[in-house]
Design a protein around this nucleic acid. Structure first.
Lengths: 152, 152
DNA sequence: TCATTCCCTATTTTTCCAGTAGGGAAAATA
DNA sequence: TATTTTCCCTACTGGAAAAATAGGGAATGA
C-alpha cells in the first residue's frame, strides 16, 4: 500500500495554503519552493485541486492559489481523492467491486475493514489541524506509540 | 493506496493452502485454477513465499506446496510483506525515513498513525481466520457498518 | 526410465508514475 | 495600451514497476 508522490505533494501544497491564512493567495512557485516540489508538476496538481473545488485561483500579478473553503472543513481524504481517485483499491478496483470465491471469500470484508479504518483517520483529520500541528486525540494516540515508529 | 495484484494473489494462494489443511500439499496449477490466477505468475509468487519461509514445497508427482507453519500463526501482513515489501509507504519510502518542513511537519505522525492502524488489522488477522470465515470481532465490527461498503 | 512438478532465468507487454516543454489566456500594473 | 505576471492547457517523454509469458533444468516418485 503506497501513497503516491502526487497525493503527498497535493496534501503538502494544501497545507501551505491553509497556513497562509483564509483568503490569502500564494503563488505556485512559492509553494514549490517551500515544499521542494517540481514547479510544473505542482501546477498540474493545483489544477486538479481547483477542478475538484478545493482551491480557487487568481491570474495575473499578485495572483496565486487559495483554499476555496475554510481549512477546518477540508479533510486529508478529500485532497487525496481529488488527485488520486479512490482512497484504497485492490488491483486498481474499489473493494465493493471485487469478488472472491472459496476460502478467500472473507477477504472482501477484510479489505473493507482496512478501508474503513483508513477513511476514519484521513476523513476526520483536517488541513487546519495538520497545519497547526494539532492532530485529534485518537490519531495522536496511535502516532505516539513508539512501536508505530519501528520498521518490522 | 493500492493493494497490488501480487499481494492479493499471494494472500488468496495462502488461503487455499490454509483451507487444504495442515501438511497437505496442493499443486500450483490447482491453486491457479481455483482462484483464477495466471499459473506461471503464481509460481513466481509461491517462490517468494517459499524463500520468505511461509511455504514449503515438494517436487515430483504428488508434489505441491503447503504452509510451512500452522495457518493460525501466519498473519495477512506477513504474507503481503514477503511478496511486496513494506506494508505502507509514501512515494516508495517508509514513513520514518520521510522528512517534512513548515506546515507539513505533522504529516509524518499522520502517516505513522495510518500505518499503525493498517498494521493493527492485517497483523492480527491470520490465514486460519480468513479461510474459516471467522474474522476477529473488532475487524468484523468495522466491516459490518453499512457505511463502510459505500463508495464516497 | 519416465511422467510429474517445482525451480530458475530471461523476456515481453503493458501500464502508470513522475516529470518536462512550450505556449496561450486572463488579470493587474504602469 | 503595452507589459509583466501568473495561471492554464495540451502534449509528450522517459523510465520504472507491475503483470504476465516462455522455455527449459532439476528434483522426486512411480
Amino acid at each position: 500500500m503506497r501513497i503516491s508522490a502526487k497525493a503527498d505533494y497535493a496534501v503538502r501544497a494544501a497545507l501551505e495554503l491553509a497556513a497562509a491564512g483564509e483568503g490569502v493567495s500564494v503563488k505556485a512557485e512559492v509553494i514549490a519552493g517551500a515544499q521542494g516540489i517540481p514547479h510544473k508538476f505542482l501546477e498540474g496538481i493545483l489544477g486538479d485541486l481547483r477542478r475538484g473545488g478545493l482551491v480557487a485561483s487568481q491570474r495575473g500579478g499578485n495572483g496565486g492559489y487559495r483554499l476555496a473553503r475554510p481549512a477546518d472543513t477540508i479533510s486529508i481524504a478529500e485532497v487525496i481523492r481529488v488527485v488520486d481517485g479512490p482512497l484504497v483499491s485492490v488491483r486498481g478496483v474499489r473493494p465493493p467491486e471485487l469478488s472472491y470465491c472459496g476460502p478467500a471469500e472473507s477477504l472482501l470484508p477484510l479489505w473493507i475493514a482496512v478501508r474503513a479504518n483508513v477513511r476514519k483517520i484521513l476523513g476526520e483529520v483536517t488541513l487546519a489541524e495538520v497545519a497547526a500541528a494539532r492532530l485529534p486525540g485518537d490519531v495522536l494516540g496511535l502516532a505516539e506509540d513508539p512501536e508505530a515508529w519501528t520498521n518490522p
